[in-house]
Simulated scan of single mutants.
Amino acid sequence: MPELRCEAVRWVDDEPFPGIVEVQFVDAAGQRWSLIDKSSIFAQFAELTPESVYPVKVTVACEVQGDIGAMGVGGVVTVSTSPDGVTTPDGRDTFAVNQSQLIP
């Protein structure tokens, strides 16, 4: 499953366990988005704690909508962050991002 490159920017709360972090990324149009969820969802590269030095590079699992192979190098793809139930604070989980932002 592909992963979207992001940055954890801050520790939000200790509850519920294991804690909540805010993660951000910039979409293909240059808009910054925030995802707030459990630290363990984003902690593929390093454990996230209140004492972590932010920002920290992280990823979030995503599903590519459509055929990524048809986009060509450097294309824009639509992804959903729904595999782990991750959304923006207003419930959005679908974004147009640069293909280079994905880890296959």
Rank of each mutant, 00 (worst) to 15 (best):
N98F: 11
D14Q: 12
P104W: 08
D14M: 06
S39C: 14
V97A: 03
E22S: 12
D67R: 11
I20N: 04
F17R: 11
E3H: 15
A46H: 12
L4Q: 02
I20W: 00
G85Y: 09
G19V: 03
F42Q: 13
T88A: 06
R5T: 07
V86R: 08
P2Y: 11
Y54C: 05
V26M: 05
E7W: 01
V9H: 03
V23F: 09
S39G: 09
L4W: 02
V79K: 00
S34F: 03
G74N: 04
V53T: 12
A46D: 13
S80L: 02
G69A: 13
T87I: 03
F45D: 13
D67W: 05
A46I: 07
F17W: 14
Q101G: 00
Y54Q: 08
G66H: 10
V86G: 02
K38L: 15
V97K: 06
K57E: 14
I36T: 15
P83H: 09
D67T: 05
F45I: 06
V26E: 09
E3P: 00
D90E: 15
F42I: 06
V23N: 11
C6P: 01
R92V: 12
R10M: 04
V64S: 05
F45E: 12
S80R: 02
T49P: 01
K57C: 02
V21L: 07
A70G: 04
D90R: 04
K57V: 07
Q65C: 07
P16H: 01
V79P: 00
S52Q: 08
P89H: 08
P2H: 13
S82Y: 12
A43F: 02
D93A: 13
C6M: 14
I103M: 13
Q24P: 01
T94N: 06
T81N: 02
P104M: 11
A70S: 13
A29D: 15
V58W: 03
V58E: 07
A28S: 15
G72K: 04
E7R: 04
G30E: 07
M1S: 14
V26C: 07
V21Y: 00
G69S: 14
M71H: 09
V26Q: 13
D84E: 15
F17L: 08
G74M: 03
M71L: 12
G72Q: 06
V97I: 14
A8M: 11
V23R: 08
R10Q: 14
V9A: 02
L48K: 02
Y54S: 05
F95M: 02
Q24D: 09
E47F: 09
V60L: 07
Q99P: 00
P83N: 05
G85D: 06
S100V: 08
Q31H: 10
D67I: 03
V86D: 00
G91T: 06
E63D: 15
G91S: 02
E63N: 13
A8C: 10
C62K: 00
R32S: 14
D13E: 12
V60A: 10
L35I: 09
I20T: 13
